[in-house]
Amino acid sequence: MKVLVATEKPFAASAVEGIKKEVEAAGHELVLLEKYTEKARLLAAVKDADALIVRSDKVDVEVFDAAKQLKIVVRAGAGYDNIDLAAATAHHVVAENTPGQNSNAVAELVFGLLVFAVRNFYNGKSGSELKGKRLGILAFGNVGRNVARIAKGFGMEVCAYDAFCPTAAIETAGVRACASVDELFRSSDIVSLHIPATPETLKSIDYRTVNLLPKGGILINTARKEVINEPELLKLLAERTDLKYITDIKPDADVDFQQFEGRYFSTPKKMGAQTAEANINAGIAAAKQINAFFADGCTTYQVNK
């Protein structure tokens, strides 16, 4: 089988080496398409591929139309909104992600950003500490659990809400379970978002919800930009000068959060999974999942129907 790794932003060399080792050990052929700047190159490369590994690369209906032999596509990472799942299903292609491989990297970034924020972005003025602060985690999956683990090391009080995670599972992790999103925001000094971008969550973090944060509240988003109602959050930050918003996702071009100097920060690009370890882990996991699929039809991490 031919396995194509198509990455506009390439894996680290050590990750590519690990992927190649896994794929070739299973008797498959690895083909690389890196740093491509035109979609036409992807369409040409995927024509005879049986499997496809991507990072944030868009895999839409045009790609599936071109990939006549494609049987499986794996997004090396947790999020998979860059893959058209309906098109994958229509073309009888299994779509998978690699959950958990980037979770520690994202969780550590949360605290890198939080320390930066509570210390007033290192502007020389007196800030505050995370110890004793109340942290609310929205979604208690792999990343949320790692955030909770690290928060305890800082001496924070931790609560969480997840519509799909049983209360008992949250409490077993030593975290207080909230009954609703509203309760989470009302009872937290800081809320960290880890929800996926789904029809139910799109723009769900809006004026009303964020306004439930107590005075001096901080909203941190290392999940997906699409879950934020950016115009409404912009309006709220203008009205409530006590709030801070920090993220590793740049806003839409027409939304000017930069006006809130000292209360807003965004990294130049999405940084959650940008560690050598996460890069390697996700790439090798993708290769192993493809090997398992071809070996015995394993679809444990399938995200389409």
Results as ranks from 00 to 15, higher is better:
Val3His: 10
Leu4Met: 05
Ala6Thr: 04
Thr7Ser: 07
Glu8Trp: 07
Pro10Ala: 03
Ala13Gln: 12
Ala15Asn: 08
Ala15Thr: 15
Ala25Met: 04
Val31Gln: 15
Leu32Ile: 07
Leu32Gly: 14
Glu34Asn: 00
Lys35Cys: 11
Glu38Asp: 10
Asp48Glu: 14
Leu52Thr: 12
Ser56Leu: 04
Asp60Cys: 07
Val61Lys: 15
Glu62Met: 14
Ala67Gln: 05
Leu70Trp: 09
Val73His: 07
Val74Asp: 13
Ala76Gln: 09
Gly79Thr: 01
Tyr80Ala: 11
Asp81Ile: 14
Asn82Leu: 05
Asp84Tyr: 13
Thr89Ile: 01
His91Lys: 11
Val94His: 11
Val94Ser: 13
Ala95Val: 13
Thr98Gly: 12
Pro99Trp: 06
Pro99Tyr: 06
Gly100Glu: 07
Gly100Thr: 06
Gln101Val: 15
Asn102Pro: 14
Leu113Cys: 10
Arg119Trp: 02
Asn120Thr: 11
Phe121Asn: 03
Gly124Ile: 12
Gly132Asn: 08
Gly132Pro: 11
Lys133Arg: 13
Arg134Val: 03
Gly136Asn: 09
Ile137Ala: 14
Phe140Val: 01
Gly144Cys: 06
Arg145Pro: 03
Asn146Val: 02
Val147Phe: 09
Arg149Gly: 15
Phe154Ser: 06
Gly155Ala: 05
Cys159Arg: 09
Cys159Pro: 00
Ala160His: 08
Ala160Gln: 06
Asp162Glu: 06
Ala163Met: 07
Ala163Gln: 09
Ala163Trp: 01
Thr167Glu: 14
Thr172Asp: 15
Val175Leu: 08
Phe185Val: 12
Arg186Met: 07
Val191Met: 00
Ile195Asp: 10
Pro196Ser: 04
Glu200Val: 12
Glu200Thr: 04
Ile205Thr: 06
Ile205Tyr: 01
Ile205Leu: 06
Tyr207Leu: 05
Thr209Gln: 14
Leu213Met: 08
Leu213Arg: 03
Ile218Ala: 04
Ile220Gly: 01
Asn221Ile: 00
Asn221Cys: 00
Thr222His: 11
Arg224Ala: 08
Arg224Gln: 07
Glu230Asn: 09
Pro231Arg: 13
Pro231His: 10
Lys235Ser: 05
Leu236His: 07
Asp242Gly: 03
Leu243Arg: 05
Leu243Gln: 12
Thr247Ile: 10
Asp248Gly: 07
Ile249Ser: 02
Ala253Lys: 14
Gln258Arg: 14
Gln259Leu: 14
Phe260Ser: 04
Tyr264Trp: 08
Tyr264Gly: 03
Ser266Asn: 13
Thr267Glu: 02
Lys269Met: 00
Lys269Ile: 01
Met271Leu: 13
Ala278Phe: 12
Asn279Met: 05
Asn281Gln: 11
Ile284Leu: 00
Ala286Cys: 02
Asn291Gly: 15
Asn291Leu: 12
Ala295Ser: 12
Ala295Leu: 12
Ala295Gly: 05
Ala295Phe: 15
Gly297His: 12
Thr299His: 09
Thr299Phe: 08
Thr300Trp: 01
Asn304Ser: 02
Lys305Ser: 11
Lys305Gln: 13
